[in-house]
């Protein structure tokens, strides 16, 4: 069991999110985080899932996800060297006498104050989940009134990308079996 970061490119149509999430549900997975937004291709959305599971189980679900008609490409970025980030906004209790201390923590974590009120601050912090966790630990003593985290988004390092779809039109669902070249079961060529 380990945490996997799965990225999917899907056609942006009603019900797609529901279909994909239901594939995880059918196999009994709990999704740790999920982030959805536009991709570089108009009409295609990019979803980033983090889930705990064995590589075999995850492979099985990604293969099931390919059966969703709108799914164009899926990759398990855990197999790649990747950059991953999460953004959090946190509303911290901040009476004037405490502000100095809070702003010191904000500086150290290169976070940003995005809203100021008389008794509170909204702070935006970006980084790995560990960094966000560490930041939250530091401000927790001041009192967290509200917290929102986007969940992980991720991208493979380097010039290439496992999410490339250009040039692969019409060949996107060609399946490469285990042991052929570098690809693993369930990956696409």
């Amino acid at each position: 069991m380990s945490t996997h970061t799965i990225v999917a490119l899907v056609e942006n149509r009603p019900g797609v999110l529901n279909r994909i999430v239901s594939k995880w549900r059918q196999r009994g997975f709990n999704i740790e985080s999920l982030a959805v937004g536009h991709s570089e291709v108009p009409g295609l959305s990019r979803m980033t899932f983090t889930v705990d599971g064995t590589t075999t189980d995850i492979d099985q679900v990604t293969k099931q996800m390919y059966k969703v008609i709108e799914v164009v490409k899926i990759a398990d970025l855990t197999e790649h060297d990747m950059v991953h980030r999460e953004l959090a906004m946190v509303k911290v209790t901040a009476p004037p006498k405490e502000r100095g201390g809070i702003m010191e923590v904000v500086d150290i974590f290169r976070a940003k104050i995005v809203d100021v009120a008389t008794e509170s601050l909204i702070i935006e912090v970006t980084g790995t989940e560990e960094k966000v966790d560490a930041f939250l630990e530091m401000v927790r003593p001041y009192g967290i009134k509200e917290l929102v985290r986007t969940g992980r988004i991720a991208m493979a390092r380097g010039g290439g990308t496992p999410m490339a779809i250009e040039g692969a039109k019409g060949e996107q669902h060609r399946y490469r079996p285990a042991g052929e070249g570098k690809a693993k079961v369930g990956t696409l060529i």
Partner: peptide
């Protein structure tokens, strides 16, 4: 023509 739906019918020659 559904870009995201192209089921393979021909098997991998090596396999």
């Amino acid at each position: 023509d559904i870009a995201s739906y192209k089921p393979a019918t021909k098997g991998h020659q090596g396999q």
